[in-house]
């Protein structure tokens, strides 16, 4: 259902007082749950639940000729589908700009953070490299698909294993090794939504409907902290101060989220040893 003007006004009034429809603070994520092994045919798969938003990421591997400018590096492809299965707002047909943008933001976070050691995905330089396909499927859309999609992608990448190869370096489809992907870090995206004059994170659909601007910040948290991808979207322009405010808060909340995801992934990987 479209969010009514009345409800939108109420959301804005609440936000003025620092409150939200569901009792959360403006910088609280919803409860996070991650399930693994959604498909035993995938090299890795994860279902992320952020409240009622549910996104599946599935990883498949392929072998291809490397690109000319990076003959010794693997290839990453991120795709997303906003299937009408997940919401009556999505339509059948060729990918809409919304799903392309979603996939591109997540792709850039993973690519630019160099969280995957692409050189280790080289089989024969100039001839054969691994290609990692990350495909996102939305199961139920209730706001904040960008952050949830990114979580699903990194959770799947960090728990995936290589398939087996035969003597000619062809993939033995359906057979897996125990070797995990060469992951160096885990990029986290936090998207802030601007409603009226305030920012909040992890909106439910009704809140997202009120937002006039959003800023996604993709970060890697280690001893040092770097931003690897950003995306400002929406009809409203922002001030420099607002962008700084968003980065500061994303960094704070992103680190908490990173710790939570890391713990879930480690627990899963530990159980598989």
């Amino acid at each position: 259902m479209e969010t009514s003007e009345l409800t939108k006004q109420r959301i804005e009034e609440l936000l003025e007082k620092g409150k939200r429809l569901d009792d959360r603070g403006i910088n609280d994520f919803r409860d996070l749950e991650i399930e693994f092994e959604i498909s035993n045919k995938a090299e890795g798969s994860a279902l992320v639940k952020l409240g009622d938003t549910q996104v599946i990421a599935g990883i498949k591997m392929g072998i291809m000729t490397p690109f000319g400018d990076s003959p010794d590096e693997g290839v990453l492809m991120v795709g997303a589908e906003l299937s009408p299965l997940a919401s009556d707002r999505f339509e059948m047909g060729p990918p809409q700009i919304e799903s392309i943008e979603l996939a591109r933001i997540i792709d850039r976070g993973i690519r630019e953070s160099h969280c995957i050691d692409m050189k280790k995905l080289c089989i024969t330089p100039g001839e054969k490299v691994w290609c990692i396909y990350v495909d996102l499927y939305i199961l139920n859309a209730d706001g904040n698909l960008i952050d949830a999609g990114n979580l699903a992608a990194v959770a799947a990448l960090n728990t995936a294993v290589f398939p087996k190869l035969d003597e000619e370096n062809k993939i033995l489809f359906g057979e897996f090794t125990k070797e995990r992907f060469p992951m160096k870090s885990m990029p986290i995206t936090v998207t802030s939504y601007k409603i009226d004059s305030k920012f909040l994170i992890d909106p439910v659909q009704q809140e997202e409907d009120c937002a006039k601007a959003r800023v996604s910040v993709n970060m890697v948290f280690g001893e040092e902290e770097y931003i690897h991808a950003m995306q400002k979207a929406g009809v409203e322009a922002l001030t420099e101060e607002q962008i700084v405010e968003v980065m500061e808060e994303s960094s704070k909340q992103g680190r908490k989220l990173y710790n939570a995801v890391q713990a879930i992934v480690n627990k899963y990987n530990g159980s598989k040893k």
Binding site: I38, A42, K60, Y133, D135
Partner: peptide
């Protein structure tokens, strides 16, 4: 009715769509 295989539901990736 719309039937679809997730790209990762099969051993060799199925192109979405």
């Amino acid at each position: 009715c719309y039937y679809d295989l997730a790209s990762f539901s099969v051993t060799e990736r199925k192109k979405p769509g």
